[in-house]
Design a protein around this nucleic acid. Structure first.
Length: 488
RNA sequence: CGGGGUGUAGCGCAGCCCGGUAGCGCGCGUCGUUCGGGACGACGAGGUCGUGGGUUCAAAUCCCGCCACCCCGACCA
């Protein structure tokens, strides 16, 4: 069922791009590296967004919005931060165009040069912390638990729809706390929320852990990550939550008076997930027939196809089922297009990943049944129409669970151990997936292994399984294994 | 920024080597027959052949410049 792993990544890449296009998710845009998200693709993002937003709000967060433009000087306040992002910033230098004197369209008006150039946000820590300085005076102002839904721009050299685009949509949470412990707990809380969302809603299992210093967010003291495994054996960083220590508070001079009337710098976190999750969703579940959506995130969970074409008799028969499904909170649509034939519609809805298709024709009406087809296994069965709403409701739950299980099995099949460099290299190269190996803990070794094999340490397990061994590169002692993988 | 490749109808491509004024499939429109797994037939619409120059009686085709995009690297929280 699942897409077979191929070492020829261009095949996999083509398969992915075909799904994006054929399932009507996104198009290339006129701007290099930016994509147009089409209504169906955006509907999936909206389902994700609404669910995440609810989870943030349940844990005391509120939404706000900060400017798109950041004065260039803000970026350089935090040394690591500017170093991390400087190479991929879009910069606004002027604020006016004028007619070209030679009549060939418009040019930038040189007299409209900005005093201070503006950077299109690659992330908002700087402008938000510059604002927080004015909002925080006392411990009574803390914690400050704010999230924003926004777009950001990172001028990446190579892009791929959803997985890495120059402009992308995301949420970024920025919180301020009175103590180190509280900020760390916040970073861990969000990390847990991301993992729960990935598994319960996306049916995408993730590894949880912290990043090595080398892979940490620019300006963070600790980065927590969730890492998923795609069907071509590559890992996808799906969401990060950062403990920022007092780095940004110091850079933007954000202090507060504690209960003892002493001045302290505040403690911070930031965290985000993006439209990259849509790419992860596609790559986790899709097959050669197209997209496969987990019911909890499918814009349409059940599509009713009249056979051979719409009629008032079929609509009346199906209408009762639709009402019963809606009563149970299931989103259902009736395909009333009378131009397309049933076979075409079947293929089309499969392409778009609709979890359950219900076929209704005269034959079914005579027998008092409907034909129920599930997208994940392609199985079809004839179900009495009277109990169909209950059957389909539980079938949706079963599909959700099956997709997660399938992905878990795939990950288990593509998780291995290596005790020497040659085994490691061949596992990474031929099998893909996560390869657990011993590492001496140094950035130097991490980088050398990356250079030799393209594999990176995806995370450091939070509760590592004790397993003494020797680093596959240097032979130095190691207390536990870390998962390596090639990553997107 | 290096190495390779491609620009021809909405999409995917052929034609280029060997110059003669543009074609195929899908899609699109109309009509008819169809309709329980991507229908078929007939007719039809749609193209500054990426762009600028050169050679030639004549350029999609040959030559030179430029631009864009894709792939592999580099890069990438």
């Amino acid at each position: 069922m699942a897409k077979e792993i191929t070492n020829r990544s261009e095949d996999y890449s083509q398969w992915y791009l075909d799904i994006v296009r054929k399932a009507d998710l996104a198009d290339n845009s006129a701007v290099r590296g930016c994509m147009v998200i089409k209504p169906y693709g955006f509907a999936i993002w909206e389902k994700m967004r609404d669910q995440l937003d609810a989870m943030f709000k349940e844990t005391g967060h509120v939404n706000a919005y900060f400017p798109l433009f950041i004065p260039k000087s803000f970026l350089s306040r935090e040394a690591d931060h500017v170093e991390g992002f400087a190479k991929e910033c879009a910069v606004v230098t002027h604020h006016r165009l004028m007619n070209n004197p030679d009549g060939s369209g418009v040019v930038v008006d040189p007299s409209a040069k900005l005093e201070e150039e503006l950077v299109v946000r690659p992330t908002s820590e700087t402008i938000i912390w510059n604002t927080y300085r004015d909002w925080i005076q006392s411990y009574r102002d803390l914690p400050l638990l704010i999230n924003q839904w926004a777009n950001v721009v990172r001028w990446e050299m190579r892009t791929r729809p959803f997985l890495r685009t120059a402009e992308f949509l995301w949420q970024e949470g920025h919180t301020a706390h009175a103590t180190r412990e509280e900020a760390m707990a916040e970073a861990r809380l969000i990390h847990d929320i991301y993992a729960r969302f990935a598994e319960e809603y996306m049916a995408m299992p993730v590894l949880k852990g912290s990043k090595t210093p080398n892979e940490r967010f620019a300006g963070a003291d600790e980065t927590f990550t969730i890492e998923a495994l795609m069907q071509d054996g590559r890992a996808l960083q799906a969401g990060t939550s950062h403990f920022l220590g007092q780095n940004f508070a110091k850079a933007f001079d954000v202090r507060f008076l504690n209960e003892e009337n002493q001045e302290e710098f505040v403690w911070a976190t930031s965290w985000g997930v993006s439209t990259r999750l849509v790419g992860g969703l596609i790559m986790t579940h899709s097959d050669d027939e197209g997209l496969v959506l987990p019911p909890k995130l499918a814009p349409v969970q059940v599509m009713i196809v009249p056979i051979p074409k719409p009629s008032s008799e079929i609509e009346e028969y199906a209408g009762k089922l639709m009402a019963a499904l809606r009563d149970r909170g299931v989103s259902v649509e009736y395909d009333r297009d009378d131009k397309k034939r049933p076979g075409f519609k079947f293929a089309e809805h499969e392409m778009r990943g609709v979890p359950v298709r219900v076929g209704v024709g005269m034959r079914d009406i005579e027998k008092g049944v409907v034909e129920v087809a599930r997208r994940d296994t392609k199985e079809k069965s004839s179900i009495p129409v009277d109990g169909a709403a209950d059957y389909i409701t539980s079938l949706l739950e079963e599909i959700q669970a099956n997709l997660l299980q399938r992905a878990l099995d795939f990950r288990a099949d593509h998780t291995s151990k290596a005790d020497d460099l040659e085994t490691f290299r061949s596992l990474i190269e031929d099998k893909g997936g996560f390869v657990y190996a011993h590492w001496d803990g140094t950035t130097e070794t991490e980088l050398k292994i990356k250079e030799m094999t393209k594999a990176t340490i995806r995370l450091l397990p939070l509760e590592p399984e004790a397993d003494e061994g020797r680093c596959i590169l240097t032979g130095k002692p190691s207390q536990y294994r870390v998962p390596f993988a090639k990553a997107y």
